[in-house]
């Protein structure tokens, strides 16, 4: 198992380094001169050149990459071109919105999907199953931003139960803050829950057909107990895989959803930064998101080892 974990760890590290190279190279070809952007359009060519030198923009490509990458390691992302504050400060302000949002959405998605999956698998082929899977099929097809718009008008504008958007900040208290994340989380979570429920159901059905489950049932264990205790645990591998993929999807989904709800999160920051050609912010956030995705996938790999006895036994 150690070898397996080690291999996954090395792969993750290599992926991260490659990703950082890709991100840096991509940002290089983005049009727009940050020095000119910072100085405004009345600045002379000399002033721009001076600032380019100060910012190290004239150094060779490789040097700049190394400088940037070593900065990342020590969480020094540089200074934002537009706000002229350290990028890490901006990120810190935003991460407290995006991360809770993605986590609430993930929790919500799991909390809906697993029971639905179990419910459906237990009634395979019957009306309840057909209904649940029909709903899931529909859920998969709904674009989350459209769903978000419908939610806003139903719950925020029509019923006025929750804010239509914006984020009061955690300083305003936990409940107002969580409340303003509810609709976005639901909008993000439901389409994901639909996918997850389908996966959970089919994984469960497969497991339920295996011999040891039949044995367990033959021993007289109640069906529900078998389903929840034995089958679910063994159906976790595909479910975890999807959960890992969904985390990446949720992080990216926050870009659009945060814009629909104008939440001051990382996704909105990155879109703003792209528009303002604040490359250093874009680079940093993309790298952060990529690192998060890689880390979560690593976590999923590790958890395989925990839930899958076969993998655990392997040396």
């Amino acid at each position: 198992m150690t070898a397996y974990l080690l291999k996954r760890l090395i792969i993750a590290a290599v992926t991260l380094v490659l990703a950082s190279m890709v991100v840096f190279a991509v940002m290089e070809i983005l049009p727009g001169d940050p020095a000119r952007l910072m100085l405004g359009f009345n600045a002379s060519a000399d002033q721009v050149e001076l600032l380019r030198n100060q910012m190290g923009l004239n150094a060779p490509f490789v040097l700049r990459y190394l400088h940037w990458a070593s900065g990342l390691l020590s969480l020094d992302f540089g200074r934002s071109y537009t706000y002229s504050v350290p990028v890490i400060d901006l990120v810190r302000e935003r991460v407290v919105v995006s991360l809770p949002l993605a986590l609430i959405a993930l929790a919500l998605s799991t909390a809906i999907a697993i029971p639905v999956g179990v419910f459906s698998a237990g009634r395979q082929g019957r009306a309840g199953d057909a209904l649940a899977m029909g709903a899931a099929q529909l859920g998969v097809a709904v674009p989350n931003f459209w769903f978000a718009l419908m939610l806003i008008y139903l719950f925020a504008v029509w019923l006025r139960l929750v804010p239509a958007g914006g984020f009061p900040g955690w300083s305003a208290g936990a409940w107002p803050a969580v409340k303003s994340l509810l609709l976005p989380a639901v909008a993000l979570a439901l389409p994901q829950a639909a996918i997850l429920a389908r996966v959970a159901r089919s994984a469960l059905i497969e497991v339920l057909n295996e011999d040891y489950i039949r044995t367990a049932r033959a021993k007289g264990l109640p069906y529900r107990a078998v389903l929840w205790r034995h089958a679910l645990r063994n159906a976790m591998i595909p479910v975890l895989t999807i959960l890992g993929l969904q985390f990446a999807f949720l992080l990216a989904g926050t870009i659009i959803i945060e814009n629909v709800f104008y939440l001051p999160g990382l996704g909105r920051l990155v879109l703003q930064a792209i528009n303002q050609r604040d490359l250093i912010v874009v680079e940093s956030i993309v790298m952060l998101l990529v690192a998060a995705v890689i880390a979560v996938n690593l976590l999923v790999d590790f958890s395989y080892a925990v839930v899958d006895p076969r993998l655990r036994g392997r040396q």
Binding site: R160, A164, G165, V260, F261
Partner: peptide, 18 residues
């Protein structure tokens, strides 16, 4: 509050947030 999109401005106004 910075609200660049008119799309976000309308619901924010209607819901009383802004």
């Amino acid at each position: 509050r910075i609200v660049p999109d008119a799309a976000a401005a309308v619901p924010a106004l209607l819901s009383g947030d802004i």
